[in-house]
Every structure is written in C-alpha cells, then in structure tokens.
Simulated scan of single mutants.
Amino acid sequence: MPPTDATANAGTAPVTDTGTTSPTAPESRIGPAADAGADSEDTLDLHLPDEFVALFAEDTGADGSRSLGATATATATAGQAGASATSAATVEREGAGAGTTTATCAPEAPPASTTPNPDDLLGGVADWGPLSTPAGALHLVPVRIERDLPIISRWMNDPAVTAFWGLAGPDNAIEEHLRSQLAGDGRSVPCMGLLEGTPMSYWEIYRADLDPLARHYPARPHDTGVHLLIGGMGDRGRGLGGTLLRAVADLALDKRPACARVVAEPDIRNTPSVAAFLTAGFRFAAEIDLPAKRAALMIRDRSLRHLL
C-alpha cells in the first residue's frame, strides 16, 4: 500500500486477490414425462402455421433434385456467417494474452485508436486538466520516469520526508516504486503537481477499494485514495497542503461520479499532515493499524463536501 499523506509512509504496491467461482448448474425445469398416449394424440392433431411451412418448403429443380426454400437457405447462410465471426473474435481474444479465459461469444478487440487508457480505473487522471485554487493553477501530470525521477528522488531523500515515506536511497529504489504503479492496471497513478507551471508536489491518486488498504477499513466501491508530498521546504508550513488537498479531493469527486468518498491514511504521528486533511474538509474516521504504521483514516464525503 503506497504512503498517503503530505509526508506519509511508503507501503507495498497495490495488489488484488483474485479467485475463480463456478456458477452452480441450474436445476432442470423439465417435469416428469407425461402420459405417452395423451402426447401422441396432441401431436397428431397439431397443425403447423402456413408461415412455418413456407419457411421450410422444398423446391424441386428441373432435374428432379430437391433443395431448401429461399427463406431457409438465407437463414442457414446467415447462421454460418455468424458462427464464423464468433470464432474469429474468440481467436483474437485468446491471442491478447496468456491465461485469458475466453467466452464462446467474446467480442472483437477494439481498434488501437479506441483502446482504453491505462488509468481508466480512475477515469483518466491524465485528462483531468488544471484546476484553479486559491494558491494558483494546479495541474496533476502523470509521472514520466526520465523527466521526474531526479526531483522526486531529491524530495524523498529529505530527512523530514524520509521519516514518513521511507523511500530514501538511490534512484533505482524510488524508480522501482514509481514503475510498479506505471506498469500496473491503472489503479494507482503517480503524478507531479505543477503549481503555476512549477513542480512542487508529488501525488498518488489511487483506487482505495482495490488497494490493500481496503482490508483495514470498511471500503466502498470506487473509494478514491490520495497521497501527497509537498516537495520544497519553501512550500511547507504555508497552508498549501490543506488548500491543494481540498481542490484535488473535489476534483476527484467531480471527475468520478461513481465515487462517494475520497480517503487518506496519514501517519497518526504526523500532526501537520492530519491537520492539513482536516483543513481540506476531511473528517477523522478512525485509527487503523497498517503494516508499516498506525494511521488516521481521513474521509471526505461527497454528501458533506459543501459543509466541511
């Protein structure tokens, strides 16, 4: 579980337990066999509609050969074409990756131009765009290793940050932390926070309901988690944390209609961070024990956003 506050602890990369369930075979709805004599009489008295007879009428050719009527032939041809399309779609789907379970009627893979972005689990954080805050325009830009690793590494090696994030060390350790998210399925998106165009913060926007954090609190579907690190010393102690957290939490609620709550879990010892979340309209929900820390569970509710 990644760290979660303005100076929060580092944790493990998000994982999801998966399992396979087999649907129970439905009970047969066919009743006991009825009296054979009664069935035979009903069948003998059955008269087929004229349309049904015409569908399967046989034509006799000049040479005496017999073939299906035009309507039946068209129906059979369409059925064969549908079966061929289904088979082709199934082959494409199976070729998408090893271990993929394919349904008989699997749809064709979408064209490359419509393939979902890797961060679709969060609704496309890269497209959230800049937002106006009392401190200026803030833009969350997904991390690019070659561009952002040096500055993130410098921030993580600040002694004031190390105590809570635990990512101090050579660049390769921090790079591994970033790549574990960038190479994932989009449930966590690391971002640089640009205030008026200047990099000054590091963010992680993640699906809390799909994160190991969900094992430690009563998670709800689409809960969105937020981690924040204010990078430069000159930007700390000015109230920026609360201002930016409120703006980003509201942005997440605006961009993710299915999300009813934004959550965070700063280290309970990190009083300035807890205070920043309270200033941002989060409420203190509980103390929870996580693998690397005792945390304050902070929640910003959609229903209370205009009251707190």
Rank of each mutant, 00 (worst) to 15 (best):
Thr75Leu: 15
Gly99Ile: 08
Ala98Glu: 11
Val161Pro: 00
Ala126Thr: 07
Ala96Lys: 00
Pro23Ala: 12
Asp119Leu: 08
Asp120Asn: 05
Val91Glu: 05
Thr198Arg: 05
Ala286Asn: 04
Ala54His: 03
Ile288Lys: 00
Arg144Asp: 15
Ala252Phe: 05
Ala276Gly: 03
Arg215Trp: 13
Val189Glu: 01
Asp42Asn: 03
Thr75Asp: 07
His139Pro: 02
Ile230Leu: 14
Pro291Gly: 06
Leu195Glu: 04
Met233Ser: 09
Phe164Ala: 04
Ser153Gly: 04
Gly241Phe: 14
Arg283Pro: 03
Arg269Met: 14
Ala57Leu: 06
Gly99Asp: 09
Ser113Arg: 01
Pro272Cys: 12
Ile299Arg: 00
Asp50Tyr: 07
Arg154Cys: 09
Ala103Leu: 12
Ala163Trp: 11
Leu46Thr: 09
Pro23Met: 08
Pro218Leu: 06
Thr71Trp: 02
Ala173Tyr: 12
Ala295Pro: 01
Arg179Met: 12
Ala88Val: 12
Pro159Cys: 08
Gly193Val: 05
Glu41Tyr: 09
Glu108Cys: 09
Ile152Leu: 14
Pro32Tyr: 05
Thr101Ala: 13
Asp148Ile: 07
Gly11Asp: 05
Pro130Gln: 07
Ala112Met: 03
Asp119Glu: 07
Leu297Cys: 03
Phe282Asp: 05
Asp289Trp: 04
Gly82Glu: 11
Trp128Glu: 08
Ala33Pro: 00
Ala72Thr: 05
Leu140His: 03
Arg283Trp: 10
Arg300Ala: 15
Thr243Tyr: 09
Arg207Glu: 04
Gly197Asn: 04
Leu44Ser: 02
His139Tyr: 14
Ala98Cys: 04
Gln181Asn: 05
Ser22Val: 15
Ser201Tyr: 06
Leu68Glu: 06
Leu140Val: 11
Ser67His: 09
Leu167Cys: 04
Asp5Cys: 13
Pro49Ala: 10
Ala173Trp: 12
Pro107Ser: 09
Leu48Val: 09
Val91Asn: 00
Arg236Trp: 14
Pro14Thr: 07
Pro134Asn: 02
Leu55Gln: 01
Leu297Met: 05
Ser84Ala: 14
